[in-house]
Design a protein around this nucleic acid. Structure first.
Length: 256
DNA sequence: AAGTTCCACAACCGCGCGTCT
DNA sequence: GAGACGCGCGGTTGTGGAACT
């Protein structure tokens, strides 16, 4: 089967995301959800491929994401899970609230893999030399451990970008409608109504813009996958329930 | 101070799977 | 059953900053 490209590559931006793009994506997903990643950038006013938007959201912008250094417990969990699951990073990430598969994968490749290699090398040495571990080796081992700890900047250690509801599971309860409003001390503060202004450009005079793309695309969404959340004050609300939605993605997106 | 190397992490890419028509 | 589509996953790459010479 011939696979169509995930997006039309022409004219699409690549590389690092700008704060402006982040704001647009965050504003759009927060308000309308990820009803279709492929179509989303078009409606959000982004010159990005849907895949890129999805990745950016899941790995960086999503609320309740834990950033910064890993605790000893987290690292042990990763190591033990990796022993049983292998490189199934998403499965490993599922056991570590707030951590993304990408982040865990990166941490594994940059830290844990080397550390394990050192450790196993050390053990092999110990076995062969029958407890004749040189002082040099001991120092090296110590260095490795110390590096792992000392490289943790206390200022950023356990730095968490998340809402005040961070104590709850990463998949916030769908009933916690206030979650979005409570997201503080993050870029979420930067979202204002003005951030949705750009979306108005997509409105058509008939006022039923938001129904059209869905209808024309044979839009489908299971009933239990979303819950309508209509803001009567929204400039997008046209009086029909079919327009703006808040989506509840049980898998990764919390409430939208 | 300048140049080089190393490291961490964000982002991209290709593939596989599930679903729909 | 085949094709099209969308999503998620894992591997890999690019890049900016820190560390070192």
């Amino acid at each position: 089967m011939v696979r169509t490209p995930c997006c039309d590559k022409t004219g699409l931006k690549k590389g690092a995301w700008t704060p402006e793009e982040d704001r647009k994506l965050m504003a759009y997903v927060t308000r309308y959800g990820c009803w279709n990643w492929r179509q989303l950038p078009k409606f959000a006013g982004l010159q990005r491929c849907g895949k890129s938007c999805r990745l950016r959201w899941l790995n960086y912008l999503r609320p309740n994401i834990k950033r910064g250094n890993y605790s000893k417990e987290e690292e042990e969990t990763i190591i033990s899970l990796h022993e049983t699951l292998g490189n199934r990073w998403s499965a490993i990430a599922a056991q570590l609230p707030g951590r993304t598969d990408n982040e865990i994968k990166n941490h594994w490749h940059t830290n844990l893999k080397k550390r394990l290699r050192n450790k196993s090398g050390q053990e092999a040495k110990e076995m062969s030399s029958d407890d004749d571990l040189s002082q040099n080796d001991r120092n090296q081992e110590k260095d490795t451990e110390e590096t792992d700890i000392s490289t943790q900047d206390p200022a950023t250690s356990n730095q968490i970008i998340e809402s005040p509801t961070s104590t709850m599971s990463p998949q916030a309860s769908s009933s916690d409608i206030s979650t979005i409003e409570n997201i503080a001390a993050t870029d979420w503060d930067l979202i204002s109504d003005n951030d949705f202004a750009f979306l108005e450009a997509y409105e058509v005079p008939s006022g039923n813009f938001w129904t059209e793309p869905f209808l024309s695309d044979d839009y489908f969404m299971p009933d239990d996958y979303m819950a309508p959340l209509v803001d009567p004050d929204s400039p997008f609300f046209d009086g029909e329930i079919s327009t703006p939605f808040a989506f509840i993605d049980m898998e990764d997106c919390n409430l939208y």
